[in-house]
Design a protein around this nucleic acid. Structure first.
Lengths: 198, 198, 198, 198
DNA sequence: GATGAATGAGGATTCATTCAT
DNA sequence: TATGAATGAATCCTCATTCAT
């Protein structure tokens, strides 16, 4: 019971930064970055706009912080990928893990997917591009045919889009996700085999 | 004389309206819809904001008009597709023609791809969704496995994204586009064969 | 009566820019630049803040425009001064004319005098400094003693400050102004004679 | 032991308060009062804004305290001046000592000189005006000609402005200061002699 | 066909200040 | 002595839109 009180306190106290991030991400993903005003975020949290500014220096810093926080697993994945041999197994594992990582930060990626124009102008843009390039360098064999290269990109893309676009496909969400993953792995596999002889 | 006047008038008239559309599309694609102000569009054209309002009742109407104008080939494609038997050949042809149609309105699709969050809130959103559903109904066999359904979506998606994402892939643009198309057709083919036995 | 209507119209119409400048200068001089908000200016004119932005791109542009408009006589004075021989008569004439010029833009100079810290950070700062340097080069003989150089600066300064600081001195304003001018001319004269032997 | 504690405490205590004053004065003089935020001051001192409020009840109190602390010598000078006969020697001595006093609080006077508009609205304004009036009553002979009265004011003014305006005059700072003082004394002397025959 | 002038609503951001701890 | 968290009021500025001419 003391635990409960503690919990409440902890929730109100020191949690504001988190709560801002949560609400912001939700709204950014839903309506886009520009259409989401700080007033709206503040109102949902029942604090003043100024309170947001205590925790984040600018609106952009909110999204930057979200990106930094939620995107770290991917950073690590790339790190890991770079240290592995570029075998088919590695590529497949990368796709599998990437899918997982995306799942962990679904709303952020939905946001990034759906607001690319905005993202490009934000500071995140560059960082994100760098990461994608990192991923590419791991799965794409530069000596393979253009078609196979496109296959790999398409694999990544399918994962990205999968979660959102497939929403209006019938079927159990979990099954859908598995299907998406399967297609992605398939694409990477085809690409690899194309390049390394059948 | 009447003809001359007509011609001139039509040219002048169609001209400004067109020029507004052109500039608007360019800016929308580049910076996003919300970040592009009517002031900016007007300045680029060296007219007043009020002039824009002579040609379009609202900002939204500009994008709506662009969508209506540039998207008609796709509308027709769907019409055509519906009247065809759902054979593999048809599906492949649809993909081929869709690729062409996308090419004809690349900036618009770049815009739609990169501003989904915005588009969703605009009147276009629904229309666009309807079209995509139409396309889906033609290529996707509802009895096929989820995986195969995903393959078809992925094909469409690859086409959409292709043009922009592949930009930073090395290689001749034309070759790249062919590669993208090839992968898309491949996906649809695999899906079809999966569903109808090998 | 028609004339009256005309007048009223003319006053309302096309005059807004001027009216903004007038009110702004008044308030800037009275309360300082930073303490004067655009809201205040707009309220006094019974227009919206946005109306101000139709006529001036930024708050700073308002003061810049005032400076440009009201300061031209001084610009011209310097031009004239440069073309004259550096005789005592010229110097005295410069002081006399400078006094006049200051009188014509008293509120602006009061503002600049009393808000130097602000002015320094505004774009006017540099321009103003340049002008003062121009003036100096005309009245100050670089070979004269430091003391005589200070005398010249003191003369300019006395003119600047005169109008405002002397306010709480007893006496007819006109007489005071004459006295100020006399002291200034005296200083310049002393400086000149110091340099060129008695 | 008590002594040690006292010493440390006093040092610490006096220290922070002092450091606030120092930094504040520096920034006020540099950027003006309104443009200097408490955040800025706090950041420079590496404390929180709230800490400032432990030492000063309001922002205004900071400048008031500076004024009170740094301006006391002038207060005393006036006291002294009032008790002296109004001879030329006294007047000259006043100018000399005033120059010294100004030197001791140069940044404050730079601030007051350059932010008159602000100062006027602050509580210091009145006090400062009173002091200037006190000074005037000592050096200015109310029966003298307006011109001579202006000379006296100009003398004070020259001292005030001297330090800052003369900055961009060539020459050794010390020499310049001497020159400024000389001109001021000169002005007072001329005024006195004008009034008392010769 | 188009402009000049204006508006109302809302945007992000900053500030001095407060208070419990 | 100080901090961490927050507020309320204000700031400059931008936007889509309107309307008389």
């Amino acid at each position: 019971m003391g635990g409960t009180m503690d919990g409440t306190k902890q929730q109100r106290r020191g949690n504001t930064r988190q709560r801002i991030q949560d609400v912001a991400l939700e709204l950014f993903a839903e309506q886009g970055y520009e259409k989401t005003s700080l007033r709206e975020i503040a109102e949902r949290l029942d604090v003043t706009k100024a309170a947001l500014y205590y925790h984040f220096k600018t609106k952009e810093e909110i999204i930057v912080s979200l990106f930094a926080d939620l995107t770290q697993p991917i950073e690590e994945l790339i790190e890991w990928g770079r240290s592995q041999p570029h075998t088919l197994a590695t590529k497949q594992e990368i796709v599998r893990r990437y899918d997982e990582a995306l799942g962990g930060a679904a709303p952020l990626f939905r946001f990034m997917q759906e607001n690319q124009a905005t993202v490009r102008e934000l500071r995140i843009g560059e960082t994100f591009k760098d990461r994608m390039t990192g991923l590419r360098e791991i799965i794409i064999d530069p000596d393979s045919s253009l078609t196979d290269q496109v296959r790999c990109l398409s694999a990544l893309f399918t994962l990205h889009a999968g979660m959102f676009v497939m929403r209006d496909l019938e079927g159990d969400p979990d099954d859908k996700r598995k299907a998406v993953l399967e297609v992605a792995i398939d694409l990477v596999t085809q690409a690899h085999q194309g390049a390394h002889g059948a």
